[in-house]
Computed example of a mutant assay.
Amino acid sequence: METLFPFLEITGPEKQQFRVELNKDRITIGRFDLFNDVALEPDPQQLISRKAHCLLERDMEGWWVVHNGGVNPTFVRKGTDVMMVEGRTSLKEGDCILLLGKFAEEGELCYWELTFRDPFGTRPAGLGRGVAYLEYDWIEGRLFRIEDEKRLEIRDLRPQEHKLVRYMEQRNRTNQHAAVLCTFEELIAAIWGDEPGHTEAEITHLIWELRQKLETNPREPRFLETVRGLGYRLVTKRLRMTAEE
């Protein structure tokens, strides 16, 4: 029976083939099955990030591929044009995601090819929610929520919350302001450094407290998103780094 969901047709460097149905709004793609919805194995040369090398996301405008800041780039082939994903790139029927999977002995580069198929996709009606994102002012250490051009300052952030926001915003800025998955391990290091004994539970509690301050509905977070089992992402758009901006 033909699926009604969009899917990926995947071909590996060794010509292995399989198909993955996109049956949820966020799909992580990486090296290990344990950490990702789509595992690109085997990867003996370790060219793909072990956790979420890239992600597929669906919003009111359609599907997107998001590079998650891995060492090796994510590419998209649209027809005969190939482009590097900087931040995120929209996906249409027949677009192909390319991830480096192998350096052959003769010097040839071999890629994983993930072709996006959405034969029953719905055209966007342009009736989605307005623009909403967070903005952090590094000069004054202030966090703002922007919704439909309304600007609201999020007050009373604790020092640990400032550290978390600053780290996650910095990760986004290096990824063309597209939200980057930040793992539990790196968030623990960003907040407490080399101090031993801190756990994922502490990060989860800190995230919960921060959501009470910045989300209009903490049970349905729009700005501080969970990537189940891996970590969190902060939705920001731009960074003010100088007093003139």
Rank of each mutant, 00 (worst) to 15 (best):
98 L>P: 07
183 T>D: 02
89 T>D: 11
83 M>S: 12
177 H>N: 15
43 D>I: 08
6 P>D: 05
113 E>N: 02
161 E>D: 08
137 D>M: 03
27 I>G: 07
225 E>Y: 00
149 E>C: 05
57 E>N: 14
156 D>A: 14
149 E>N: 06
242 T>V: 01
220 E>K: 12
74 T>L: 05
98 L>Y: 02
206 L>W: 00
17 Q>D: 01
134 L>M: 05
38 V>R: 10
46 Q>H: 07
53 H>I: 11
131 V>W: 00
45 Q>L: 02
240 R>D: 00
222 R>G: 09
214 L>W: 01
26 R>G: 04
153 E>S: 11
21 E>S: 14
57 E>Q: 15
198 H>Q: 03
177 H>K: 08
114 L>H: 07
5 F>N: 15
125 A>S: 11
125 A>W: 00
153 E>I: 07
14 E>A: 12
220 E>F: 08
130 G>R: 08
50 R>N: 14
55 L>G: 11
76 V>P: 15
3 T>C: 06
224 L>Y: 01
166 R>Q: 10
215 E>D: 09
127 L>E: 14
235 V>Q: 06
210 L>T: 14
71 V>D: 12
31 R>G: 08
73 P>G: 08
87 G>S: 13
4 L>M: 12
41 E>A: 15
155 R>W: 00
129 R>E: 14
137 D>T: 03
223 F>V: 07
175 N>S: 15
140 E>K: 01
229 G>C: 04
9 E>C: 14
107 G>D: 04
32 F>S: 05
164 L>K: 04
81 D>V: 15
112 W>P: 05
189 A>F: 02
12 G>H: 06
137 D>Q: 02
223 F>H: 06
135 E>H: 03
230 L>P: 01
155 R>T: 09
134 L>N: 03
73 P>H: 08
110 C>Q: 13
122 T>Q: 09
55 L>C: 13
168 M>D: 10
130 G>N: 12
232 Y>W: 03
172 N>K: 02
53 H>D: 10
57 E>K: 15
115 T>G: 04
153 E>H: 10
10 I>G: 14
36 N>Y: 07
143 L>D: 08
153 E>V: 05
194 D>I: 13
156 D>P: 10
210 L>P: 08
204 T>R: 15
143 L>E: 07
12 G>P: 12
236 T>H: 01
239 L>V: 06
29 I>T: 11
16 Q>T: 14
224 L>K: 09
114 L>E: 11
20 V>A: 12
122 T>W: 00
218 P>H: 02
160 Q>E: 06
207 I>R: 04
162 H>F: 01
43 D>S: 09
163 K>C: 01
75 F>Q: 05
109 L>Q: 15
15 K>M: 04
42 P>M: 03
179 A>F: 02
54 C>W: 01
225 E>C: 11
122 T>H: 03
229 G>S: 05
215 E>Q: 06
186 E>D: 15
220 E>W: 04
53 H>K: 04
27 I>T: 11
93 E>I: 07
162 H>Y: 00
231 G>N: 11
52 A>G: 14
7 F>G: 10
157 L>R: 02
81 D>M: 15
237 K>A: 13
160 Q>H: 07
75 F>P: 08
223 F>R: 04
78 K>Q: 13
105 E>P: 09
154 I>C: 12
79 G>W: 05
199 T>P: 14
149 E>W: 00
33 D>I: 13
103 F>K: 05
73 P>T: 11
116 F>W: 05
200 E>K: 05
37 D>W: 00
15 K>P: 01
19 R>D: 06
149 E>T: 09
31 R>L: 04
